[in-house]
Write a protein that binds this DNA or RNA. Structure first.
Lengths: 131, 131
DNA sequence: TTCATATGTTATTTTTTCTAACATAGTATT
DNA sequence: AATACTATGTTAGAAAAAATAACATATGAA
């Protein structure tokens, strides 16, 4: 519950999302225009993205690679959403599920790592801090 | 390892950190000036903060509340750093530790939730999405 | 060919962030 | 009390990031 909250929290500016996803601002805005994502807005009207948004964008990229168009991707997303609604009738999580969640988390972390390596760009943001 | 990576990844602009920590930009920059945090910089010289930075800032706030000054906080942080170096000689994590990590994660999530509730401000970023 | 889709490019405006300087309330020191 | 220091506020001006909107275009479908 709190984990989902955090993943849904809109924290990232578009510049970061561009780097994490290797998409241009134009592309990201275009996908929003087509309702594939709906990033939040700051007071000053800046788009603020969540990790969920980043996930979605990464998937959009893949699906586009597979030749699927906006409408198709929208369909895919909608189907998944329905699925989640149906299967989210569990109130507490078991011990085993705990592990599953952790596994999923690590996967997510991997995705980000990959993103940064793929473009070899994020490294610029890591300064060498003394000790 | 990948979890740590993600928590150390500088993704957030100062505006978001201000909201998460309830600190002013002036305060955040001042703490940086005193080396309590060392946020990364974007190409355009923007400060980019990691979740670790947010953690640190939340703690700085607490310590200041307790009447501790910059030098004192620096000391506290340095001590902890040394401790971590000494105790980080484990290469793989046990089953039990897995739980500990998860617990810590949830705590972190809670902090963020608290931050948003305390200021009742982040809610503005959550749009009501259909469904 | 003509049309539609996904994306590039450019111009203009607004918002955000930066640095730097000066101001000040509260503490501590002399 | 007078002075100095600390943490923070405030302001100004410059630079960077991001928004919208319009027009351009390559590719593939009809």
């Amino acid at each position: 519950m709190s984990r989902e909250f955090r993943r849904a929290m809109p924290l990232l500016p578009i510049s970061m999302v561009m780097q994490l996803t290797e998409l241009t601002a134009r592309q990201i805005r275009y996908y929003e225009e087509h309702k594939l994502i709906e990033p939040a807005r700051s007071e000053g009207n800046r788009r603020m993205f969540s990790l969920d948004d980043v996930d979605a964008l990464l998937e959009i990229r893949e699906l586009l690679d597979q030749g699927i168009n906006m409408a198709g991707i929208k369909k895919v997303f909608d189907m998944r959403k329905n699925n989640n609604v149906k299967s989210s009738n569990k109130l507490s999580i078991s011990d085993a599920e705990l592990r599953a969640i952790l596994r999923e988390e690590m996967q997510q972390a991997q995705i980000m790592q990959k993103a940064s390596l793929r473009q070899g760009d994020l490294s610029r943001f890591f300064q060498v801090k003394g000790e």
